[in-house]
Amino acid sequence: MSGLASAPLVRTDALAVGYGAAPVLSDVSFDLRAGERIGVLGPNGGGKTTLFRALLGELKPLGGALDLAARCGTVPQTERSRLDFPVSALDVALMGAIAGRPWWKHPGRAERRAAREALARVGLAELADRSFGELSGGQRQRVLVARALVQDARIVLLDEPFTGLDAVSIRRLEDLLDELAGEGRGVLIATHDVEQARAWDRVLCLNRRQVAFGPPAETLSLDVLAATYGGSIVTLPAVAGEGERLALLPPHHHDHEH
């Protein structure tokens, strides 16, 4: 890689991805630079996870270009089967060190130390030996961040990491993401929360195709939000201390039960 500070970690051009012959997500052209946090917005089924799968190498592009300067670390969407897995927080963090040693070797002392240090960095030093499934939702996400740290991933993908977390855990995780970006990693965060994404560097709006990409202040217009979420948007009157806020009235939804 060239030493240019602006050389992106990820660059896609008219990328199309899907599970069969027909793409479920197309026209994706964006780039992720070192030290940048990009919020990936979109409705359920909009293609956020599909994009991440392409970046992780699970799905081959059906069209367009995809360039990665490094391998991705990932904090995947929460899945119930993982909660029942017979591993401790330390075991999970150690998974980040597998690539660094020959296939027949077990983790050595240095790797264990690195894994414990990563857990300490995310504030979980005392819970290293706890079962993964016994941790709270926010703690589990931080264990997975620790795995990415052990892996020393320069690109970190987080797929709806805030879903189901309480306010305190959300703050903690947000601070952690700021730290990751602060040390020069590129961070992509899929989220449902438009307001949250406004604090990040850029936003990528997806709804089966790329709707918009750019800094939140310029990008998140009414039209873009409507095209992203496919609903109608209303302006809420200003409340004390804050200006006007936008609220989205979703079209009648099918796949959400809460």
Binding site: F52, G73, P76, F85, V87, M95
Partner: peptide, 20 residues
């Protein structure tokens, strides 16, 4: 260790370098 890591999170396997 590899079987465990892939079973735990198949999506991460390639990034971790264990998707052999």
């Amino acid at each position: 260790q590899r079987w465990l890591a892939v079973g735990f999170d198949p999506s991460a396997a390639r990034g971790l370098g264990v998707r052999s």
